[in-house]
Simulated scan of single mutants.
Amino acid sequence: MKKDFGREYRKDIFRKIGWVLLLILIFFILGMLIGSALGGSNPLAVLWPGTWIHMLDFLR
């Protein structure tokens, strides 16, 4: 059996990448909520599916 000496290092790197992606997602959602509140609308409206459908239709 061959030992994999880089396995722990890879697990550590993937764990750090996962935490960074999770933090990016959290800050993205918080930014959308704060931006919507400062814009004068309901902050939770950015989480509704209708809002996303409207944005995707606008991009087409």
Rank of each mutant, 00 (worst) to 15 (best):
F27R: 03
G39Q: 07
K3F: 03
A45Q: 07
R60P: 01
R7A: 11
Y9S: 14
G40Q: 06
L59P: 01
F5P: 03
V20D: 08
L33T: 02
H54T: 11
L38K: 13
F28N: 09
P43I: 02
F27M: 10
G31K: 08
K16T: 08
L38A: 07
M1P: 03
L21H: 13
E8I: 04
L30S: 08
G35N: 14
E8L: 15
L25R: 11
I26T: 07
E8K: 15
G35Y: 05
G40A: 09
L25N: 10
G50N: 05
R15L: 07
R15F: 14
G35S: 08
D4M: 05
R15G: 09
K2H: 06
M1N: 13
F14G: 00
F28V: 06
R10N: 08
F58A: 12
I17V: 13
R60M: 09
A37K: 03
F5N: 10
T51H: 13
L33Y: 04
Y9H: 12
P43L: 06
G50W: 05
P49F: 08
S36N: 08
R7V: 05
G40S: 04
G18K: 12
G18A: 14
G35D: 05
G50H: 00
G18T: 08
W19F: 15
G40H: 06
I29Q: 11
P49I: 02
S36E: 15
L33G: 02
L30M: 07
D57N: 15
V20C: 08
F14V: 10
L30K: 04
V46A: 04
P43N: 07
